[in-house]
Write a protein that binds this DNA or RNA. Structure first.
Length: 215
DNA sequence: CTGCCGATATACT
DNA sequence: GTATATCGGCAGC
């Protein structure tokens, strides 16, 4: 499986804005499947109107108010699951939405998991590009909410396989929100084709016609 | 590639 | 009733 140590609690027990760029290029392991995280977004608490935690704890967002290093999984739009890594400080809501990854192991299982009814991911690039796709590809759903990511033997964890975070990382506003859109709290790996949404890259010779604004 | 639209759980007014 | 941290299918370019 994946080489390298499992990220421990001290890694996550810091503000999400600090952890975010360091989490890029770490490997999210779920059973026999793994994806290199190439895009994350930070969400805070009472001062972040775009966050689920903005209005205080509920049954759904309880994990966000819990301990750093756990997985917050929520259901959205009536169909999709999305996964977050809870950050610090302890007992204050703070999390990183895992928005996209590059498949690195268990790709066959990912292809199976991503086939629902008639929908089929036609390119491997579509397996983990997007928060709900990433969760589905890795088999993460509501059962994984609250899982401890820092147990080395846990089913879901982050491995550091020695690939450094990008320097500098890409930075932009968060995707798909209406409030606090001006905050540049989305980090990504420049040039990675698995990044969802706007990214200042054309790695692999992809088009990049009318240059989109990028922070 | 871009844009529109529907599916529909959860939280909220 | 409305809004939402999304996605897939389709139309059109």
């Amino acid at each position: 499986m994946q080489r390298g140590p499992t990220l421990d609690r001290s890694f996550f027990d810091r503000p999400a804005l600090v952890v975010a760029p360091e989490l890029l290029n770490k490997v999210l392991v779920s059973g026999d499947r793994a994806a290199r995280i190439v895009e994350v977004e930070a969400y805070e608490g009472a001062d972040d109107p775009a966050s689920h935690a903005f209005r205080g704890p509920t049954a759904r967002n309880a994990t966000m108010f819990g301990r750093p290093g756990h997985l917050y999984v929520y259901f959205t739009h009536g169909l999709h699951w999305c996964a977050n890594a809870v950050c610090g400080p302890d007992a204050t809501p703070s999390a990183l939405l895992l928005r996209a990854g590059a498949p690195v192991a268990g790709v066959d299982q990912m292809r199976v998991a991503r086939q629902q009814g008639r929908s089929v991911a036609r390119h491997d690039r579509d397996l983990c590009r997007g928060p709900a796709r990433l969760a589905q590809a890795l088999g993460i759903d509501g059962q994984a909410d609250g899982a401890d990511l820092t147990q080395g033997r846990g089913i879901i964890r982050f491995a550091d396989d020695g690939v450094d975070p990008p320097d500098p990382p890409g930075l932009s506003p968060r995707v798909g929100i209406r409030l606090a859109v001006e905050r540049p709290w989305r980090w990504y790996v420049p040039g990675d084709p698995n990044v969802s949404g706007p990214s200042m890259n054309s790695a692999g010779g992809r088009s990049m016609k009318s240059p989109k604004a990028d922070w």
